[in-house]
Amino acid sequence: MASLIDLANPTRFMRYSAVLLPWLAGLSAVSLVVGFYLAWFVAPADYQQGETIRIMFVHVPAAWLAMMFYTMMTLSSLGTLVWRHPLADVAQKTAAPIGAAFALICLLTGAFWGKPMWGTYWVWDARLTSMLVLLLIYLGIMALWRTLDEPSQAGRAVAILTLVGFVNVPIIKFSVDWWNTLHQPASVLRLDGPTIHASMLWPLLILAVGFTLMALVLHLVSMRAEIMRRRVRTLTILEAERLDRLAAEGAPA
């Protein structure tokens, strides 16, 4: 359970990530500032949707990141199950809350956009609904992590769940589309239509890069915190055992 080998490999990760973090954070801050400036002051308001179109600049990157983090969790799960890499389950565990947060941001911004557009905070639009199901899968994974407290055992269980979820995501997407078209004609207004003007595309891309970098920074920081947390746990258990041995040797009653 508590072995020193657990501490060995992640050490290199801690060193490299400490060097990398400030650069990533700086880069992320710069691209977010530039992106938001362009999105707010340069990009024009939409002739149909007005100023509310600017919500898209947060909504779309959040949707991408929610899916990207799930893909990354799937790769990490393979890392846990196939290569048994010691960092894989750390990466998987810490990615879940971040991915869930972006899914939530995507849903909330969708709701704020929906109120003026549709007159209601929520419609069961196929894309939004798929994102809501993705959020539920994220929450399930987080719940499983919280329920199993032995990291190595929990890592395997969660990895299997993540893979099952990944296989399911396209099926869910297909089913939700089917369900949605069955009940209502495809909505005319799409939050992210296929045609997009260059004056909007650039800020969107820059913001997407900025948000991705920010997500990576958050992920690295929380991976470091998780590694630290496991070290503290391991060391505490070892220390309690050592003090016990000392007490037993020192005072034979």
Partner: peptide, 28 residues
């Protein structure tokens, strides 16, 4: 605490509310 399951009920609540429209259709 971790593993207490205090938040599971909330997640389950959300899940059920999401499932019902899939059965009934998205007619607001």
């Amino acid at each position: 605490r971790a593993g207490g399951g205090g938040e599971l009920a909330l997640v389950f609540f959300l899940t059920i509310v999401v499932l019902v429209p899939f059965a009934l259709g998205p007619d607001l």
